[in-house]
Design a protein around this nucleic acid. Structure first.
Length: 257
DNA sequence: GCGACAG
DNA sequence: ATCTTGTCGC
């Protein structure tokens, strides 16, 4: 299924997928064709990343008072054959969930460091389509611009949808940082090739720092401020934490025993 | 050549 | 990511 040139399997199911609602924005691509122009190769994927990264603008351009925040994450089933994408919409002020969606689609790409979005973005876009209304802000489990070519899955999501997006990862993909202070809120810049591409944020005491990096329409400082606003006593911000629980079949309602 | 390597 | 119970530390 992977011959080095065509690593991505285009499937019938994807071809007849439902079109994206018109609530997303002018920059959006359809969930059925997430990577227009991609030839399916590794080199082509990297080239597309460089091209899309050039479209990322880090000027804050979100609603004055975001009313909703969405969290996205992915998990796997059937030994990896099925990709589970979770999308949770929360009230930005109370952080209470308003909508929760879980979609299952066939896995079509293996995990390749630096090309995570080519594996998980399609499923995330399908999950996004389930929302009854577009979120004011998006948070994705993964890197924003803290990526070798400045297009982690969060940044890619933002470019693909036109929505303001923030990346929150549990670990670093590239670059380095000095350990931030021990108290919640302490932070230390993430550097890569001489550029500040993110912030290692101590979101909770005695926990490893969260790697925060912006996607389109959000600045680095803005991303940190938004993440801080979404914290509720856990290392991960609520949007991503709830999506993670839903995608990883660890959701309270789905557990027995 | 060697080490690193989101999820 | 995923396979998996209890356990050490705060």
């Amino acid at each position: 299924m992977t011959d080095g040139r065509r690593l991505y399997r285009r499937g019938r199911a994807l071809a007849r997928a439902s079109p994206r609602p018109a609530i997303i924005g002018p920059m959006s691509v359809s969930a059925s064709d997430p990577f227009p122009g991609w030839d399916g190769s590794i080199a082509g994927a990297r080239q597309l990343q460089r091209q899309l990264a050039a479209q990322v603008r880090l000027q804050d351009a979100l609603a004055d008072a975001p009313r909703t925040v969405a969290g996205f994450d992915v998990g796997f089933d059937d030994g990896g054959a099925t990709t589970r994408a979770a999308a949770v919409l929360l009230d930005a002020d109370t952080l209470q969930p308003l909508e929760r969606h879980l979609v299952r689609v066939p896995t079509r790409m293996p995990y390749v460091p630096g090309l995570l979005s080519f594996r998980e973005l399609p499923a995330l876009l399908h999950a996004l389509d389930r929302f009854s209304t577009a979120p004011d802000l998006v948070m994705v489990d993964g890197q924003g611009i803290a990526h070798p070519r400045r297009l982690g899955i969060a940044a890619h999501f933002g470019v693909a949808t036109g929505l303001p997006t923030v990346g929150g990862a549990k670990r670093l993909l590239c670059g380095h940082f000095d350990p931030p202070g021990p108290r919640p809120g302490d932070r230390s810049p993430v550097l890569h090739q001489g550029e500040v591409v993110g912030m290692a944020l101590r979101s909770k005491a005695r926990c490893n720092p969260l790697i925060v990096s912006p996607g389109p329409r959000v600045s680095l400082d803005g991303a940190v401020a938004l993440v801080l606003r979404c914290l509720a006593g856990y290392r991960l911000p609520e949007p991503t934490r709830l999506a993670d629980r839903l995608a990883s079949r660890r959701d309270g309602a789905a557990r027995r025993g």
